[in-house]
Structure formats: C-alpha cells, structure tokens
Design a protein around this nucleic acid. Sequence first.
DNA 1: CCATTATGTGAGCAATTACTCTCGTTGGAT
DNA 2: ATCCAACGAGAGTAATTGCTCACATAATGG
Lengths: 193, 193
Amino acid sequence: MNAITLRKRPSQQRSAATMAAVLEAAAQVLEAGGLSAFNTNAVAARAGVSIGSLYQYFPGKDAVMAALIRLEAARFEAELATALEATASLPLPQAVERLVALAVASQTARPNLARILDLEERRLGLEIEVTQRSQTTVGQLTQFLAGRGVRDPQIAAGDLQNLVRGMIDGALHAEPNDLTRRIVRAAMGYLRG
Amino acid sequence: MNAITLRKRPSQQRSAATMAAVLEAAAQVLEAGGLSAFNTNAVAARAGVSIGSLYQYFPGKDAVMAALIRLEAARFEAELATALEATASLPLPQAVERLVALAVASQTARPNLARILDLEERRLGLEIEVTQRSQTTVGQLTQFLAGRGVRDPQIAAGDLQNLVRGMIDGALHAEPNDLTRRIVRAAMGYLRG
DNA sequence: CCATTATGTGAGCAATTACTCTCGTTGGAT
DNA sequence: ATCCAACGAGAGTAATTGCTCACATAATGG
C-alpha cells in the first residue's frame, strides 16, 4: 500500500535555515531588480539552493512572497512594540517623533522593498492574518493613541500609518533632509485637529 | 533605392483613435487584473485591435505604460490647473479642501490604477519629462504655495502630494468616510507647522 | 555493512510572453 | 479598371517562467 506516501514535509531545523536564506534572497532580488526580476529561479540561485529545494519549502512563488511579507511585518511590529514601551512616559510630540524616526529608519534600509511588498500584500489579499489586534502595526498604534485620549483611535492609527508611509516613500527619492521633522509636523497637525 | 522604406510612421488621424483605444484598454486591464495581467496581447484584444496594430503605434510594452502614465498625469494636471484658478481668491483652508477633494475624486475613480502607475513611473525613470515646471503637479502646487507665503514651497508641495496620495491609497480600502476632512486636517497641520 | 528514509538536485516540460513578418484589405489617385 | 501606398491582421518564433520528476546524496537504524 502506502500508495500515496505523504509527500513533502521537510520541517524541523534544517528547513529554518534554508527558508531564511530563500526569504533573504527574495528580499535582495526584489530590492535590486523589482517585481519583474522576482522569479523562482533567480531567488533559488541567489539563496544558494536548487529550485527543487525551494519548492520543498514553499508551495509556490506567491507563498514565498507571502512569507516575506509576514516576516517583514513581524520585524517592524517587534521594533514598534519596544519603541512604544520606551516612549510610554514621554509627552505626545516626543513620542510621535520617536515613532516616526523608527518608521523612517525602517524604510530607508531597503527603499524599494516596502513599496513592492505593500502592493503585493493587496494583490494576495492577506491583510488580516497574524492579526491578533495587539500584534498588528495599526493595532499597536490604536492602543497607543487610545491611551493618549485621541478620538477614533482606530481610524487615526490607519491614517497616520498611511500618511507616514506616503511621505517617506515619496521623499526618499527627492528630499530626505529633515524628513522626520516634516512628517512629525503633519502627524501632529492631524492629531491636534 | 529606398532600400529601407522608412518603416513605421502611421501618424495622422486614425492613429489618434487607435492609440486612445489602446491606452484606455491598458488602463482597464491594469485596473481589473493588476500588473501581472498587463500584457500586450490582452491590451490589444481589449482595445479591439490586433497586436500588429498595437506595435505599429507603440515601439514596445513599456512605451504603452509610459504613454498611459503621461496621459493620466496630463489629465490630473489639467484638472488641477482649473481647480487652482477657481480657488485663487479663497482663504487657504477652503482652497486646500477643494484641492484635496479633487485628489480624492481622481483616485476613487480607479483605485488600483494610480498605485500601479506610480510604481511603474519609478521603474521606467521618467519622472522629469513633460516637466515644464508649470505643468507638473508639484510645479503647480509649488507656485500656489509660494503665492500663499508658505516657506520652502517646493519641498512642501512634494510633501503634501505624498501625504495626500498615501492617505488616499490606504484609506480607500479601509475607511473612506470623511476622508477629505481627515486629509485636510493633516495637510493644514503640516502647513501651519 | 546494508536498507530505508529524508533531503537535495537540476534538466526539462508546458505555458506564457513580447514581438516579428508575411500577407490581405482598403481607399484614393491616375 | 489598375495600381500603390498605407494600414491592419494574426499565425508564428524565440525567450522566459513556474514548476515537476526522476535521480543523486546524506542521514538514520539495525
């Protein structure tokens, strides 16, 4: 019997290293060549594994994208969580400045990557996923704003995220000087109403 | 003689209609299926012309994209120009509200298109093109802001454009209610410093 | 040692794509 | 009527891509 021998399933330790290598390679390919350069052969080659191996760990191309999106989101959310702790006792303007500086630093590291991941996230429709509200970026921000007495904190959190993202995306290629200050001005203006 | 018979060159009247059909088809394909659905066969089919014809009017796929980007940019810049005239005598907050409302309306019509065109514009690197400063979106905005006594009007124009674009992009899929009001709040906050 | 399983490999296939080239059609001038 | 240049059509081609599969190698257990 055992007609169907329960395919796939590498699991465990080795897989973690290979998967990480693949995801890092995917990030590099996207950053260097954009969406059009993102193909499984290129990713596998840059990761130093064969395409066969890549397909042992990921069911398909989109799964690699999705995993990368989740990884980057988790990274940023972890940074955000510690930053929020550190600013818990600061007055609002200083707290906002710290958070904005964090976002700027995060986007500056790989200017093109975040933009592409954002587009792809929409295409794949995996917006709500890890979404324990407390772990999402907007979720954390919502709680922060609510704690500061901001009205409609959920909407405000979304708006601020979009505002910051938009200003960073655009300005990185044009006028990065003093960017944090400029963003803080807009964000505080929004919050003061 | 005339060994090479001076290839291509359809020009004149008919071309305008065909080119317009191709560009409108390209916009529809992008809006409906995203970047991955954007291929020359699909565009030609939707436009109701053969691929042969498409390639008579456009030297390649990217040229179609570029033409579409320029067309949409020109459309928006024309709308912006008339809106700026109409708001010339209004106080700043009302003027800003009108302009923001225009941007919101423009993006709402085809929510996905602008985002994609923006990404592609960067990939093709055709930022400065039509760029008679007075015809660009930022150029027009810069003059407007300068006339209102805003400091660093060029930087402010860029920032505002990015801020508005970011907030619209993000909010269209989440909380479109009262969007204009919220954006105006951020924009005016930025301008008041 | 061998047998059995887990893991990795990469040539190759099927599908898709951008683009070309040959040929048919049209419409106006002679 | 005949010709000719402009225009359109769409089958075909070469290249690329996502992905499979038959096989090599490494780990594990007896």
